[in-house]
Design a protein around this nucleic acid. Structure first.
Length: 666
RNA sequence: AGCGGGGUGGGGUAGCUAGGUUAACCCGCUGGGCUCAUAACCCAGAGAUCGGUCGUUCAAAUCGACCCCCCGCUACCA
């Protein structure tokens, strides 16, 4: 591909919650490609933003007792901060609440209206009198008329899979408040989608780089016949529908969030000067629009968005490619916040560096079909690929130069067959990664990076410079000269995937932070002084169970409680004044504890396996005094002692010095 | 129910649109080598007749038909 202008976009995450790793896939894929294109020297702009409107967000805000604006601003800030930590190289990450976006969207739809692609139609839709709102189909629940399942939703019964509509449900109720919805007449504005069927078909057929999943699915939809789509909603949280008589209606999110690709471009150049330059991206025919999405977004990007652009008659560029990923499952199941399945992008970074995740996600990127995330795979990728193969190759090369050549790239002698083969391999892999990325085969490209390191390891083993250093110094010098060229190439070609590691390696090589793609194959000169070698990756010496436990720990520690909530827990120092086994139980001790009150308190604690009663007498410990009492083995336990547990080991918490029983712990 | 995608050695994937050498790669396993390096690296080997059946063809994992299984979508859910 010759140098050009490319707008890279990723689907706008709906920020009802923080995203999980699956949600991150399109964003991460877009980042890899944006970084790659920048390295190649293209004129790149990478934009996205938070999708903040719509009913699910209103409902979530209601649940949390805050306004949709507060909820989405809170989540947006959180997500912006996280994307930074994930090294997502957005040029502009904005939101659908941005004034630029709102204004652009309203003007855009006025245009579409003026061009005659919008009409109104009245319909009867479910309305909850108590919540005073119209309900999207999925927010109506009731009994399935076919299988009798009680929790069926107005769009579909999850039990029998049949498509429903809210009028069919028996005993329908509002899933927000539980009262019975009524059906109320309302008017909505519709987009006349069928009029674009032929143009869309041509567009999709002629865009050869569309992946199969997006193309086939879209063509099928067109063949089956497009239907007009309602553009408006009876909802307050959204962008006002800019049509006459549409007071109180907002635009359906899918008719505004995709336009964010344009408004975010406009906003970027507004902020950075050069206000008209956004038009280069959206109207110049040599500019490319490249969208990354998950497979659920296909029709919105291959049909609705292009149709909207066509409806303006203004000659917008349509998406050049819509690179679509399949799903990432967790242990075979879909991510689910409520069922605690999956890993969230904030938790992940509390566990391991971003590059570990970036690599694992890209090398396992679901392209042909859904893939599965398991700890086993994660361990394999990090330990075997990153640490043993890539990290170790770099380290052994740099250590050798540090230790044997005073940290200077040695002067090579004549190249033998193996040397030439190695240098050719660098060029070969460099080219293959290039080709793979150009074809959006990110998974394959990621694998090839490790393959190059593997080639490097093989080369070192065959050349054995640790032997030839004495027997044939010229050969050893050549070997290390060649090896360090491989390291340099790696430092460049891993950058799109692992920007942090790339930077680390550059530092070890004493190279500038910024290099271009082509620099990968430009040799380091002899005599170049490199820096100190240090391991780039660390092995994870944990079992799958350990990792799961770690995740759960991280998850707990991230569930922040307010100081007020914490203050409700009354913890005090107690002194054990009596301890005896609970008759009939294996692991229970009955402890009598002085907590500084008139009467001592009783605690029933499961520590008999770890402590003998006589060892506990007069020991000071920490107890929670205001937990609700609980009967255990017929004994009322009034307080709880604090203990730490790791696997099969349990120890209680003891003050570091003696202190008066009843002293408050905080 | 319809549609889309998938079913490849023990695990994970590629190949399959343009059918043709010993079905590729990673992990794991077995045996060996090396010691520069993060107990890492390298070599060799065992292991799949490519979901099933039928068909097209000189030749099929790759094309066609039917069947079974998994995932997703079916647009007023983002």
């Amino acid at each position: 591909m010759k140098l050009g202008r490319i707008l890279v976009t990723s689907a706008w995450p709906y920020i009802q919650h923080v995203l999980h790793l699956g949600n991150l896939l399109p964003i991460l894929s877009a980042d890899v490609m944006a970084r790659y294109y920048r390295l190649k020297g293209h004129d790149v702009l990478f934009v996205s933003g938070s999708d903040v409107h719509g009913t699910p967000i209103e409902v979530e805000a209601l649940r949390q007792g805050i306004s949709p604006k507060e909820l989405t601003e809170k989540n947006h800030r959180k997500v912006v901060d996280l994307f930074k930590k994930w090294a997502i190289s957005f040029d502009n990450y904005t939101t659908t609440e941005s004034p630029v976006h709102k204004e652009f969207v309203m003007n855009f739809h006025r245009k579409v209206f003026e061009n005659g692609y919008v009409f109104t139609q009245e319909s009867e839709l479910p309305y909850c009198p108590k919540c005073k709102r119209f309900l999207p189909d999925r927010f109506v629940e009731g009994e399935c008329p076919y299988c009798g399942y009680k929790g069926a939703r107005g769009d579909q019964c999850e039990q029998c899979g049949r498509l429903l509509d809210p009028t069919k449900l028996i005993n329908a109720r509002c899933s927000i408040c539980g009262s019975s919805p009524i059906f109320r007449k309302t008017i909505h504005w519709y987009f006349d989608l069928p009029r674009f069927a032929d143009k869309l078909k041509d567009y999709i057929i002629n865009n050869k780089q569309f992946p199969d999943n997006a193309r086939n699915f879209s063509l099928k939809l067109i063949e089956e016949g497009l239907k007009p789509r309602p553009m408006t909603r009876d909802s307050e949280w959204g962008i006002p529908a800019p049509f006459e008589g549409a007071k109180g209606k907002t635009l359906y999110v899918w008719f505004e969030n995709v336009l964010g690709y344009i408004s975010a471009t406009i906003e970027y150049f507004k902020v950075h000067g050069d206000e008209d330059r956004w038009k280069k991206f959206w109207f110049d025919k040599d500019s490319k629009i490249l969208c990354f999405i998950g497979k659920d977004n296909i029709p919105f990007h291959t049909i609705i968005f292009p149709a909207l652009l066509l409806a303006t008659h203004e000659g917008y560029n349509l998406p050049w490619n819509v690179s679509t990923n399949e799903w990432l499952n967790f242990g075979g199941q879909k991510s689910s916040k409520s069922r605690k399945i999956g890993i969230w992008i904030d938790e992940a970074l509390e566990m391991f560096p971003a590059d570990y995740w970036r690599y694992t996600l890209m090398v396992n990127r679901p392209e042909a079909s859904d893939t599965n995330f398991t700890w086993k795979i994660f361990l394999e990728k990090v330990n075997s690929d990153l640490n043993d193969t890539l990290g170790n190759f770099i380290h052994r090369t740099l250590m050798f130069i540090n230790n044997y050549y005073d940290g200077k790239v040695p002067k090579p002698g004549d190249l033998d067959e193996l040397d030439k083969r190695m240098l050719d391999a660098v060029k070969k892999y460099f080219k293959e990664v290039d080709e793979a990325l150009n074809g959006f085969h990110i998974q394959a490209a990621t694998k090839k990076v490790i393959d190059l390191a593997r080639e490097g390891n093989r080369y070192l083993n065959e050349k054995e410079p640790w032997k030839t250093f004495r027997s044939n110094p010229e050969s050893a010098a050549t070997t290390l000269y060649v090896s360090v060229q491989v390291v340099k190439a790696l430092s460049v070609i891993i950058e799109p995937f692992m920007p942090f590691a790339s930077k680390e390696i550059r530092k070890c090589l004493n190279l500038p932070e910024r290099l271009m793609w082509e620099d990968a194959v430009k040799p380091l000169k002899e005599g170049h002084k490199i820096g100190q070698a240090k391991p780039i990756f660390r092995k994870i010496n944990l079992s799958e169970d350990d990792l799961q436990e770690m995740l759960e720990g991280v998850r707990l520690s991230m569930q922040k409680i307010s100081f007020e909530e914490f203050s409700k827990i009354d913890m005090r120092v107690g002194k054990i004044i009596n301890a005896e086994k609970v008759p009939g139980s294996k692991n229970l001790l009955k402890l009598t504890i002085d907590v500084g009150m008139a009467d001592p308190k009783i605690a029933v604690a499961g520590i008999a396996k770890y402590y003998r009663p006589e060892d506990l007498l007069n020991r000071q410990i920490v107890v929670v005094t205001n937990l609700e009492p609980k009967k255990i083995f017929g004994i009322e336990s009034e307080v709880m002692i604090l203990a730490a547990q790791h696997g099969d080991n349990v120890v209680f918490i003891q003050p570091e010095k003696q202190i008066k029983p009843g002293s408050k712990v905080s």
